[in-house]
Design a protein around this nucleic acid. Structure first.
Lengths: 249, 249
DNA sequence: CGGGTTTCTGCGTTTTTGTGCAGGAATTTC
DNA sequence: GAAATTCCTGCACAAAAACGCAGAAACCCG
């Protein structure tokens, strides 16, 4: 069998089944693993396949990509994300809501972090999926098209079954008097369940949303452990929250 | 034998078998390897064949095995998707697996279609989410990074709770004798559950996957109701399936 | 017809290419 | 962490290609 012929066969297999194992190829074609590996290397150099440990993948299926441009207040959110990431250590179970701040957190996760992330937010799940060492658990239920998150009794029931080490809530509004509030009834139900199911609750909020109020209440300040904004912890705007017993980062 | 005669013979052989070996040519025509090589070189310079180490290939070989751009076999998949979409009517509950053929189906859904789609495939969910009138139900569980689909006992349990009107399976391999087979154990478990939970099971498969076999069995032909390929229903390659009682579109 | 030229072919040598193997390094996986 | 895969590197060997050369055939033309 000619080299080109072999490579054509490999390419064909990859495109057909979306993945191939070097081992199965080398028994099928009856050549050494080295030859297969060299072929995969060449095809990969030509950009025709994606070489991975143990085989190769087709290029087509792997391209679900999310540009992160145009996010509102992205710089602030990156600051928040960096502070938040520092709270996550290896082996943790992390529960997250949706929202652009959470997305920023997802993109900031260091590649070597090994943790389990649980979420019902489809965009967040996509982002977690791209990380090499993170296990992703999806909360299933009906998708709310507004918030791109799964909502409903099933989702709440599933959340109640877990006990996460830490929970990150993207926050819509926070206020010393009214606590955390939001404007989507179903999302509020979810967040309540998440708070219940976590040892530690962290609110992520850009300073702009601090001291604002929305119609539906999620929880009192007493139920959250940590508030993260892009401001330094001693900023006077945050004082009421410190006084209310919330740690601020 | 004249040079021109020889080259005509070579060209004929190449077009007939899509490949020739220099070594076999030189015994057939009874000239030295050098002569053959020079002939191949000339034919290659004229663009009539593709010269490779050890012999030569025809251009048609390249066309067959190196589809130029985009998702592999996208045209075929679009044909399949159109046939499949025609089976969905308003109000239906639709269960789908993952894979590029399913993605094509998702993109082909007409905007006015009102239906409920249930899936654990993250890329598919994304696609469904963008449609204006489709309700999306997510099957939750751990995400398999290979297949970008949720897998595990929770997912299977959830699938068993539904009774869908129709189920679309992206097929990795189908064969008259071995039925439907696949190469990922967890995905196979899911597909089995999906088949159980649906009134009607439809297999989507490009013709190239027809009559191929993978290591793990999903089900026998008897369990599927419909097979959709890009070929016309009376193509002889599909005859064994019709004989086995599967409807073909 | 015959000498000169061009083309074609085969041979030996040198290079290049393709393949498999052995070992140690890197990685996955449990 | 430890065992098992898989990967990479260098190497050896074989097959094929490239190159130069020389003899043979064909061709041209006076």
């Amino acid at each position: 069998m000619l080299k080109k012929e072999r490579q054509a066969f490999i390419l064909h297999q990859v495109n057909l089944h979306n993945k191939v194992l070097s081992s199965s190829l080398c028994t099928e074609i009856n050549v050494s693993e080295d030859t297969i590996r060299r072929d995969l290397q060449e095809l990969s150099d030509e950009g025709k396949i994606i070489k991975v440990h143990g085989g190769a993948l087709s290029h087509s299926f792997n391209q679900v990509y999310f540009p992160s441009i145009g996010v509102y207040s992205q710089n602030q959110k990156q600051v928040i994300a960096k502070k938040a990431v520092a709270l996550i250590s290896n082996g943790m179970f992390v529960l997250t809501s949706g929202g652009t701040t959470i997305m920023e957190l997802a993109r900031t996760l260091p590649p070597q972090l090994k943790a389990t992330f649980i979420s019902g937010s489809i965009p967040a799940i996509l982002e977690y999926m791209h990380h090499p060492n993170i296990e992703v658990i999806v909360i299933g239920d009906k998708v709310s098209k507004n918030s791109k998150i799964t909502v409903g009794s099933e989702a709440i029931a599933k959340i109640k079954q877990v006990k996460a080490d830490i929970c990150f809530l993207g926050t819509n509004a926070i206020d010393a008097e009214h606590g955390i509030t939001d404007n989507d009834w179903e999302v509020v139900q979810l967040k309540k369940a998440m708070i219940e199911s976590s040892k530690m609750v962290v609110c992520l909020s850009i300073a702009e949303k601090v001291n604002s109020v929305q119609p539906i209440k999620v929880c009192d300040l007493g139920e959250i452990d940590l508030l993260i904004t892009e401001l330094p912890a001693d900023d006077p705007i945050l004082l009421p929250y410190i006084n209310a017993g919330v740690k601020v980062l």
